[in-house]
Design a protein around this nucleic acid. Structure first.
Length: 191
DNA sequence: GGTAGGATGGGCT
DNA sequence: GCCCATCCTACCC
């Protein structure tokens, strides 16, 4: 079910294009993997919801760095969220991975997500999927075009339809249509 | 079926 | 000191 690793050129584009094209791709970490069914774009410039909105700091350095790397941060002191860096080096832009359909290593994912009762609960949220795949802040800055954490083309057919909506859980730029998901897919965090 | 509230730590003003 | 790109539990229909 897993095709070739996506090359760096895939990420070296407009953030919204990358966010839409990541739907249907396979996120892999070690022996666990899942199909991406929900993403959000966080832009440079005047997108005040983005961590990069207030410029280059030690935390946001990765977001301004080269495309095809991971930005992983701690949210609410509890959960970790995975982003993939888009846009050429020097320009901010990243894509939050919000939900996966678990496809490989499901028993290992269950052992990391003991509280998840149903298969749909394993990776249907940004904090859930990092726990399920074993992704943490140690992966911040990692190159996702090689190594343990990678994104692949899918051998299945591409996603038939994409729905656009406002992003979840933010207060600034709350009406910007930068969330993308596969409609009707039961692994999406919110239909 | 639904939602209100708490956990918990790091980044930035 | 305040603000979070979340998730889970308890409790209420």
């Amino acid at each position: 079910m897993t095709g070739e690793v996506l090359p760096r050129e895939f990420y070296n584009r407009d953030t919204v294009e990358v966010a839409r094209d990541l739907l249907g791709k396979v996120l892999r970490h070690g022996s666990t993997a899942g199909v991406i069914v929900e993403t959000e774009a966080y832009l440079g410039g005047d997108d005040l919801a983005a961590h990069s909105a207030h410029g280059l700091t030690s935390r946001t350095r990765v977001i301004f760095g080269p495309p095809g790397h991971a930005y992983v941060y701690l949210i609410y002191g509890v959960y970790e969220c995975l982003n993939l860096i888009a846009e050429p080096e020097g320009k901010a832009g990243c894509v939050l991975i919000r939900a996966l359909v678990p496809t490989e290593g499901i028993e290992l994912m269950r052992s990391r997500r003991v509280k998840a009762r149903r298969l749909e609960d394993l990776a249907s949220g940004p904090g859930k999927l990092t726990a399920a795949l074993g992704i943490s802040r140690t992966h911040n800055g990692a190159d996702v075009t090689q190594g343990e954490l990678t994104v692949h083309a899918s051998l299945a057919t591409s996603v038939p339809e994409i729905v656009t909506s406002p992003r979840i859980g933010i207060t600034k730029c709350a009406d910007w249509p930068l969330r993308f998901y596969v409609p009707g897919n039961r692994f999406v965090s919110r239909g």
